[in-house]
Design a protein around this nucleic acid. Structure first.
Lengths: 243, 243
DNA sequence: CTCGAGAATATTGCATACACTTTACGCGGA
DNA sequence: TCCGCGTAAAGTGTATGCAATATTCTCGAG
């Protein structure tokens, strides 16, 4: 996708005659590099770029209409985060994790979610508990309607609430980062039949335990929840790999 | 330290007339950027640069005799890791964590070490267990001699063994990364009276549980161990701050 | 027809140049 | 003396150029 195609109509092949001059009129949110990091991360997380695919600097630079310098910095940061891999004098590549590493990430994720659920059960404020519950109940509707995309958004929101509820900044960072790296592999899980309902039921178990301040069961339920996501996703990943 | 001093003898103020020309004869381990990341991280971790201190790009470039480009990339990566902070058009700054964030990192570290110890108890191979035990026993000598620096090296080694023993790549990454970020604050802990012996005893509890494959107690012991390090370090950090 | 060596091309790594932003400095006025 | 304000200096953000490395292509030998 990123590698050059032969077609001369393809915008990647067009030599852009216009000077790359950033005018101050251009309202920029943050620096170019930040934008690039977000943009490229999106490409990876949304699956527009598959693991193993090459991230060619000049193509990206043309695509986003910037010079190679910010692209390079962005790739460096994505590398530090772990979304891409680089070796000297070669193109950056979307991180291609082995089955084993994937499994280790899911296991770590389960541990981290377990911690978050446990700490949430112990530490969430009354407001946080109330919000968690109402948001969760609201998503029941989506399950009935089979609204996958909307449910997925709610799902993300739900987990974020758990992460925040732990009231630990660093744990929040770790779990968020791990989730980002798992995102490419988790993408299609809600396509599997019955996954939506099952996810809801598992959330239910977590919510009940958290509301009761039952740390042990909250932790267990969260761990188990990730474990089933893991199973679904690893199966999916294997299919993709063999395809 | 990094900011310019007035003295014209200071090497930071010397205009370097020599061209920055990298000859191929120079044997380089990895790219310049990698070296820079390591070098700057070292400055921070070893405490040569204190939290809050400015990392001026040109000074660093002169100091390491490279251009600003690799310095910038390195700073970007260190920012992604969390060792430095940046905002647009300002110098990068060694991350200055609040008491609260520091506490959250130690708590996260305790959780992670607990996980590692638990998994190690369950998963370490016979060889790994043997090595853990013999290395641990060897360090007893250092405690008696009061050899702080050597003990610290052994201590690092000991914990790394636990992290590896968990047989989970991603957990290893997370715990290693967290340790790096805590390093600046943990530095002086072994200076505290009696800390050496106490550390050894705590390691002992972990080793015993791991060797017995007693996951629960291994986890507890590891958690408790970090908690005491945390106490010592937070006290130290507070002293530094108020000084 | 396949394989491999070597040239041609593409791409990365770093240095440098320059525009824009922030900070430091100095000076006049209150 | 102290406070603004304007200018100078320093510093960051990005584009571009060049050398070094990797990749692709070509063509001849087997």
């Amino acid at each position: 996708m990123v590698t050059r195609c032969i077609c001369m109509q393809c915008k990647f092949n067009q030599i852009r005659p216009v000077k790359l001059a950033r005018k101050k009129e251009v309202i920029r949110s943050g620096t170019t590099v930040e934008q690039m990091v977000r943009a490229i991360a999106d490409l990876i997380i949304t699956g527009t770029m598959q693991p193993g695919e090459r991230l060619d600097e000049v193509s990206l630079a043309n695509r986003f209409e910037v010079s190679r310098t910010p692209v390079r910095e962005a790739l460096g940061q994505l590398c530090a985060i772990g979304l891409v891999e680089r070796e000297p004098n070669k193109s950056a590549v979307v991180t291609n994790v082995t089955q084993q590493h994937l499994a280790s990430m899911f296991e770590a994720m389960a541990e981290l979610e377990g911690i978050c659920a446990r700490l949430s059960a112990e530490r969430m404020t009354v407001d946080e508990r109330r919000m968690l519950e109402s948001e969760h109940k609201a998503s029941a509707r989506l399950v009935h309607r089979g609204a996958q995309d909307e449910y997925e958004a709610h799902n993300t929101e739900f987990h974020t609430r758990l992460y925040r509820g732990a009231h630990n900044d660093h744990v929040f960072e770790l779990v968020t980062q791990t989730r980002a790296r798992l995102a490419p592999f988790r993408r299609a899980q809600f396509r599997l039949p019955g996954r939506l309902l099952r996810s809801y039921e598992e959330h239910d178990a977590i919510v009940i335990a958290v509301l009761r301040a039952d740390a042990v069961n909250a932790s267990r339920a969260a761990y188990a929840h990730v474990a089933t996501v893991s199973d679904a996703s690893i199966v999916f990943a294997r299919d993709v790999e063999s395809a």
